[in-house]
């Protein structure tokens, strides 16, 4: 990444202009044309440096309930269990970690009832009952902002 890339990206990590032509607004600040700014973003996207631009919601304010779930899955059942978990659109992240509880995923649902139903279904389908439901109590930070050097 060039210094210019980092500078431009850093400026973008906090807010994307809320105006009819946001790329023109960014271009005006960076001293280039709207066309150049758009081309720059498309290049970042193509290079995989930019995943997307979007509105970030506070899910709790939308009444959505979320949790972090840890499962203790034996090696022999790992592939099948991961497939079952990943099939849910409600599950956004799923990781393998080096712990007795080795599978960790985040789940969100429109209601408590829905969340419990999803977890019950996963237990039933996978046959894994050793599950920690680490319900969110308070969010101190939820932001993908990095210090770019």
């Amino acid at each position: 990444m060039t210094t210019k890339d980092r500078k431009l990206l850093k400026g973008l990590q906090t807010d994307f202009p809320l105006t009819s032509r946001p790329f023109a607004a960014l271009a005006a600040e960076a001293g280039c044309t709207e066309k150049e700014m758009l081309a720059y973003f498309k290049k970042l996207k193509k290079d995989g440096m930019l995943r997307y631009i979007a509105a970030m919601f506070d899910l709790r304010k939308l009444g959505i309930v979320s949790s972090l779930i840890a499962l203790r899955v034996p090696e022999s059942k790992l592939n099948k269990t991961v497939k079952i978990i990943n099939a849910y659109p409600n599950i956004s992240h799923n990781y393998l970690r080096a712990d007795d509880y080795n599978v960790w995923f985040t789940v969100s649902a429109a209601s408590e009832r829905k969340l419990k139903a999803i977890l019950a279904e996963i237990r039933k389908k996978s046959g894994i009952n050793d599950m920690l439901d680490l319900r969110t109590r308070q969010v101190f930070k939820s932001q993908a902002v990095f210090e770019l050097r």
Binding site: A54, A55, D58
Partner: peptide, 9 residues
């Protein structure tokens, strides 16, 4: 409800 509109790297 919306925390921000922004880029995700």
């Amino acid at each position: 409800v919306i925390r921000r509109v922004g880029t995700v790297l």
